[in-house]
């Protein structure tokens, strides 16, 4: 049981890192950004390319994340920005196209076979008499640290406050004379960086394969829906909650573990619909 809880926390931490950018983009710009999955997958493959040269996990992570920033800027600037304010399905189709294109690019450059990345530290800790890998504990700590850092960013900086305000009333922000799109770009890049970090630190736990972006972007979508669209704290609880759902279902029926996330998402949507209706 303890093992499952720790596994759930690890998955939850990764889900949070990968989903937060998706949730912010959805909440502020009303854009369902499937290209988020491209960033996630590409960053892992870039990392695999860089790691043998630098022989240092953290340094390779930093370099890969830096390399992914221009790509995320290009996606925001030339694919997403022209679609701000348009119907939600335009961006959905456009970003889905990006996800397809990058998946094919990955297959073309790196092939279709899954690739393994070794864990940077094999040290284990004894938690409640269970051996728990230090690396997974680091992942959980990183996610919690990111949560607090983002909270500070949103509460204490003007850029953060503009985003919080835009989550409430994007028209109101524009009517004050603030060019919110500048801030959206910044937040888009922050979200992409976090997706890249999430993807890279998760890659030693799972294997890297070209379709990993598809799988994770759907999970990020579920986290965003369950957490409440645009609710950044909600996304944190939702990510860890759904991480637990995956871990607990995996104990009983591993094949259904990820499907349960979408069952929970559907249930949450139904409950919300009932509430709204009543």
């Amino acid at each position: 049981m303890i093992e499952s809880i720790m596994f759930g926390l690890t998955i939850g931490a990764i889900l949070y890192l990968v989903s937060i950018g998706f949730a912010i983009t959805f909440g502020t710009m009303r854009i369902i950004n499937f290209a988020h999955g491209s960033i996630y997958a590409l960053s892992v493959y870039l990392f695999m390319m860089v790691l043998p040269y630098v022989q240092n996990f953290v340094l390779a992570l930093v370099i890969s994340v830096v390399l992914i920033i221009p790509l995320s800027y290009l996606i925001e600037r030339y694919i997403i920005r022209p679609l701000y304010g348009d119907a939600v399905h335009y961006a959905l189709v456009a970003t889905y196209g990006v996800l397809f294109a990058t998946t094919d690019l990955i297959k073309w450059i790196w092939g279709t076979n899954p690739k393994l990345i070794s864990v940077p530290t094999k040290v284990t800790l004894q938690i409640f008499d269970v051996d728990f890998p230090l690396y997974r504990l680091i992942i959980i700590i990183v996610a919690i640290a990111v949560f607090f850092a983002l909270n500070l960013f949103f509460r204490k900086t003007i850029a953060g406050k503009v985003i919080v305000a835009a989550l409430d009333d994007s028209t109101g922000v524009r009517c004050l004379g603030i060019d919110q799109y500048r801030y959206f770009s910044l937040v888009f890049i922050i979200g992409s960086v976090l997706a890249a970090v999430g993807g890279i630190i998760y890659s030693p736990i799972v294997s890297a394969e070209p379709y990993m972006g598809f799988k994770f972007v759907l999970l990020a979508f579920a986290v965003t829906i369950v957490g409440g669209m645009g609710n950044l704290t909600g996304a944190f609880y939702s990510a860890f909650g759904l991480g637990m759902v995956i871990a607990m279902t995996a104990r009983v029926w591993p094949r259904l573990s990820e499907m349960m996330v979408f069952v929970v998402m559907a249930a949450v949507l139904l409950i919300r619909k009932e509430k709204d209706f009543s």
Binding site: I158, V164, D168, L176, I178
Partner: peptide, 19 residues
């Protein structure tokens, strides 16, 4: 619709920043 996630002061702060 005010910026309900922000305080009254922060609402004013954004307006002062913009202006």
């Amino acid at each position: 619709k005010v910026f309900s996630g922000l305080t009254v002061k922060e609402n004013l702060q954004l307006a002062s920043f913009a202006a």
